[in-house]
Design a protein around this nucleic acid. Structure first.
Lengths: 112, 112
DNA sequence: CACACTACCACGCGTTGCAAAGTAGTGGTC
DNA sequence: GACCACTACTTTGCAACGCGTGGTAGTGTG
């Protein structure tokens, strides 16, 4: 993959994961699959699982283990209050950066 | 600064720098100052200069040195054809990721 | 038993943003 | 002429992160 696209996605993963979990309790494998349908958000398990571990360690996620109908047990994650706060903050940061960049990009004559 | 905001900005810097130079030949110190007015795009020199070096090494930028009226000589950068191509590609990647994430964020009930 | 799918984990590499500190040139103040 | 402030670029070192590769374990199918 383009190295700069990798960089672009960096820092967006965490927000994407939080957004996925904010929709309702879910587990890692499912997050990977659900994000894959969004162009540019196709992360692999080796990206998502560490993010989940990190967010859990930071107290943003609570885990619940439940047996799977086919395969190993699933680890269901949901947002803690801290997680919800983090989500809101990241979302705000994203909007700020996103809007600033859009402004910068549209200031010159590009295809509209 | 928030660690996740740092991550968010990662990968956006290069695009911001390319966008700045695409507006016309300019130099590092000026880029830093011009980006500072955009909220969320306030990078320091130790971030911008390495980016310029990297882009130049990759053949995306051409340099011209000119004396400054006050201070050391300025290194003026402009986009090469490769740099313009890179800019278009990154811009496209940005739009893709940006739109996917917006979709994801708006799918749940947030403040509209 | 071989294969495929689900689901999670660990190692290691390369890239990167940024703080800190430095250097060099010009101009102004006392 | 010592001191500061501003301009402008550079170097060093750290910590964080995405992801490729390769694994383990559970269930079902042929």
């Amino acid at each position: 993959m383009n190295p700069w696209e990798t960089q672009l996605r960096k820092g967006v993963v965490e927000l994407a994961v939080l957004a996925s979990i904010a929709r309702g309790e879910t587990y890692g494998y499912r997050i990977v699959e659900s994000l894959r349908v969004h162009e540019g958000l196709a992360f692999t398990e080796s990206t998502i699982y560490p993010v989940l571990t990190r967010l859990t360690r930071d107290g943003c996620l609570a885990v619940r283990v439940e047996a799977s109908p086919a395969g190993p047990s699933r680890r269901y994650y949901r947002l803690t209050p801290a997680g919800e706060a983090r989500f809101r903050e990241m979302r705000k940061s994203w909007k700020t950066v996103s809007q600033s960049l859009s402004t910068l990009l549209e200031r010159q004559g590009g295809e509209p």
